[in-house]
Design a binder for these strands. Structure first.
Length: 594
RNA sequence: GGGGGUGUAGCUCAGUUGGUUAGAGCGAUCGCCUGUCACGCGAUAGGUCGAGGGUUCGAGUCCCUUCACUCCCGCCA
């Protein structure tokens, strides 16, 4: 028999009444009646109410024992009378009469209560993460995470994928995020980099002939945090497949995600076969490449309307002449909404730094007309044309913004979210997945005006090497795709470029000559010259998947030991200074701070 | 690097137009209480009002600087 317990704290039931048992766990809560003491003991599995009265010699000692002390109790399982049954806990039909107890782990006065629904500051939660993790909600989130990862492993195995580990100490690469660097003692002055993703390795695994690979891979990027982005490190379900086209990857990911989300959430899936939206369509219709498809609102371009003579909205007309675009959002049947609804949205847009959102509602008495502050500027014919373009109907309202393309795209995208919220159009009980496809291979850097890779430099461009017009690099599309759920980007992937000749060509457009490519990507480019199979893959973010399943807005709620926004671990006090010997061995000198 | 929010007891918070000795709940300590499950009742301790400077007869409250936490922009192939 186990030294500490005969049962866990969620095990005892009516059938155990009369048994002599022992339990071990934390004192979750005490209810002290002076001559009678109730003690709830908690472990990973649940809570059991224990009871002791003054007749027992241990009474006064137990009465004074702090909450969260770890104790072992020996006692007998008792029935509870009908009116004292607690239906909130699984063990609520019984209780344990304590005969003796033993303190296994003492507890100081707590810096934060464990048994409480209160919210606490991040600072205290992170500093005492081991206490925070005892609390029900986050404890369950972490267990969920474990189960999701385990399920995904099984599914991947079932789908014929092999799990491999790849190096954590690797080389710095010029593209992408900032690297975390690790100095090399044996090679003074040189540094390893922690992998931003096992990108090159997984391609090398394909070149090595393993056909289907996956890994729950740690990824390290030295970039600033967000609510849905851990600083420093996060996990991806990294996967790669040989002899596949885009559709083959989609099929695997759809199967995996549908199974995972159906298994771990009660929410509905809006699509079992995820819709595919081209990047350019997404940007136009939603103003972003990570649209929330639960939101039915779409953005339309009605710039051409403002060239018409029967439209007299002079401010917009003038802006359009100088190259601005007009985009609009139609809200269905909002004719009876109060003026305040419209004005609130206009005011909100101004708060976002835009020049506001013009609006009108389409009405029909004998002829079609527009009601609202700017309605008078549109003729009957112009309104019909707008209705034609936007599919708006009588009784609908139209919100318009006019600005440079990038600005109008930004504000209409935000407005789409804001209006949907105000109209309560988003079904919180749904997951809406979609693929964003046909990403451009290159984009122009706004600052330097140079052409650079818009996503992954190893992606395969669409079209054969003979057909691609390399003189218009911004027109080249890639077999590059993202998967998005409820407006959250879960992952990027691509069919890879496995042809060295084409690779050099594309890198040259982004400003790397052959020598640089050979140097910086030696592992990859060399391997591709020795018989590389066509291959492709993707890497869904594990943390974000668990966030969606746990219904959490912050990634720290699904991360066991997260760092704070400044990439510090308040519990372990990382990062920290190191001693002079360590620096000497590494041949490093710390510059004085300015 | 930039913008917003927050910072008052161990924890969660209140604190009026600037005005006496800065309050409450939980927790802690002590006392009472044999059926609670957020047990109840009474008492006690506990404060550099994040820090520094300024305005004022007087600052938790107004102003400036700064720090911490957080959200967002930049950044994240």
């Amino acid at each position: 028999m186990n030294k500490y317990r005969s049962h866990n704290c969620n095990e005892l039931r009516k059938k155990d009444i009369g048994k002599k048992i022992s339990l071990a766990g934390w004192i979750n809560k005490k209810r002290d009646h002076g001559n009678l003491l109730f003690i709830d003991i908690r472990d990973n599995y649940g809570i059991t109410q224990c009871i002791i009265d003054k007749a027992n010699k241990n009474f006064s000692l137990l009465e004074k024992t702090q909450l969260e002390t770890v104790i072992k109790v020996d006692g007998k399982v008792l029935d509870r009378t009908k009116d004292t049954i607690n239906t909130d806990i699984d063990t609520g039909e019984i209780e344990v009469s304590i005969e003796s107890f033993e303190v296994l782990g003492t507890c100081n006065e707590l810096p934060m209560p464990v048994f409480s629904d209160q919210e606490y500051s991040e600072e205290i939660r992170l500093k005492y993460r081991f206490l925070d993790l005892r609390r029900k909600k986050i404890h369950e989130n972490i267990i969920l995470r474990s189960k999701v990862i385990s399920f995904i492993r099984n599914e991947m195995n079932r789908l014929g994928f092999l799990e491999f580990q790849t190096p954590i100490l690797t080389s710095s690469s010029p593209e992408g995020a900032r690297d975390f660097l690790v100095p090399s003692r044996l090679n003074p002055g040189k540094f390893y980099a922690l992998p931003q993703a096992p990108q090159q390795f997984k391609q090398l695994i394909m070149v090595s002939g393993f056909d289907k690979y996956f890994q729950i891979a740690p990824c390290f990027r030295d970039e600033d945090a967000r609510a849905d982005r851990s600083p420093g490190e996060f996990y991806q379900l990294d996967l790669e497949m040989s002899f596949v086209e885009q559709e083959d990857v989609f099929k695997v990911v759809e199967t995996l995600l549908v199974n995972t989300f159906e298994r771990f959430s009660n929410k509905k899936l809006m699509f079992n076969e995820f819709p595919k939206i081209t990047y350019s369509d997404a940007i136009l219709k939603y103003g972003t490449d990570k649209p929330d498809l639960r939101n039915p609102l779409v953005i339309s371009d009605i710039t051409e309307i403002f060239d018409r003579d029967d439209v007299s909205f002079e401010i917009f007309k003038k802006l359009v002449k100088s190259g601005s675009k007009v985009r609009c959002i139609v809200t269905k049947n909002t004719k009876d909404k109060p003026r305040s609804f419209f004005d609130n949205i206009d005011r909100w847009a101004k708060e976002q730094g835009a020049s506001g959102l013009a609006y009108f509602t389409i009405e029909k008495d004998k002829v079609i007309s527009a009601r609202g502050p700017v309605g008078k500027f549109f003729s009957n014919d112009a309104l019909e044309e707008i209705m034609n373009i936007t599919k708006a109907e009588i009784g609908d309202s139209i919100f318009l913004a006019c600005n440079k393309e990038s600005e109008v795209q930004k504000i209409t995208s935000q407005a789409r979210d804001k209006i949907a919220q105000d109209l309560n159009l988003i079904d919180e009980n749904t997951f809406a997945f979609c693929w964003i496809v046909d990403y451009p291979m290159f984009e122009k850097d706004e600052v330097t005006k140079k052409i650079k890779f818009s996503h992954n430099p190893f992606s395969m461009p669409q079209g054969s090497i003979k057909d691609i017009n390399f003189d218009k690099p911004l027109d080249i599309l890639a077999y590059q795709y993202d998967i998005v759920c409820n407006g959250i980007e879960l992952s990027s992937g691509a069919i890879r470029n496995h042809m060295p000749e084409l690779m050099y060509k594309l890198f040259s457009i982004a400003g790397y000559d052959k020598k640089q490519v050979d140097e910086k990507f030696s592992g990859m480019i060399n391997a591709l010259s020795y018989g590389a199979p066509p291959h492709g893959g993707i890497a869904p973010g594990i943390d974000r998947i668990v966030m969606l399943l746990a219904n959490e807005k912050n990634i720290r709620e699904v991360t066991m030991f997260p760092m704070n926004q400044n990439a510090q671990d308040l519990m372990m006090k990382a990062p920290s200074e190191v001693n002079q010997n360590q620096l000497d061995e590494l041949k490093l000198i710390i510059k004085e701070k300015k």
